[in-house]
């Protein structure tokens, strides 16, 4: 039987909606300003949602689950790490808009360590680099970017170690 849309986070949305209702009673002015912000953020995010749909569709179309596991699964090795770093660096928009895509990949067997690398590498924002250089200098931008990459890798290594220990304990 075909299932309908299984929405995620409905309870969370109800809670936020209730907060807004309460604010409308106690602080109407700011509640209205916040609602205007919601529209502004949604408007800004529309192109990113489109980009994410395209990226996810391309992944679904070109990469079969077996290939995803090969590139980002347990045996992915250095190639998977490099792809995760690059994907993190070039991905746009707030972190939460990427959750559906990441969850989709995770359900196909992408390693948690590569997801951590992706998430931390997102701290490097290529379009923002000129702005960062202008405010804080080239040296600062280079050094912080290199440390971000290093700590993204360290997080991935740590997560891999934890998961491997967990797996060997489960086997024993």
């Amino acid at each position: 039987m075909k299932k309908g849309v299984q929405f995620k986070g409905l309870k969370f949305l109800y809670i936020v909606f209730t907060i807004y209702l309460i604010l409308f009673v106690i602080d109407r002015e700011n509640a209205l300003l916040a609602l205007q912000k919601v529209w502004a953020i949604l408007y800004q995010l529309l192109p990113i949602f489109l980009l994410i749909i395209i990226v996810t569709a391309l992944i679904n179309y070109f990469l079969k689950p077996k290939q995803i596991v090969k590139h980002f699964g347990k045996e992915s090795g250095a190639k998977g790490v490099i792809y995760a770093l690059l994907a993190g660096i070039i991905s746009h928009g707030p972190m939460y808009v990427w959750y559906p895509t990441i969850q989709e990949l995770r359900s196909h067997g992408v390693k948690d360590s590569l997801l951590l690398i992706f998430f931390y590498a997102r701290a490097i924002k290529i379009p923002m680099l000129p702005f960062m250089i202008a405010l804080f200098g080239t040296g600062y931008t280079i050094v912080i970017s290199l440390y971000i990459l290093l700590f993204a890798l360290l997080q991935g290594w740590f997560m891999d170690t934890v998961n491997q220990n967990r797996a060997s304990k489960a086997e024993a």
Binding site: Q6, G9, V38, Y99
Partner: peptide, 15 residues
């Protein structure tokens, strides 16, 4: 995949 997560995304945007 985007649609199913829309309530969660809207909640986050609200916050």
């Amino acid at each position: 995949s985007i649609l199913t997560m829309m309530p969660m995304l809207l909640g986050v945007i609200g916050l």
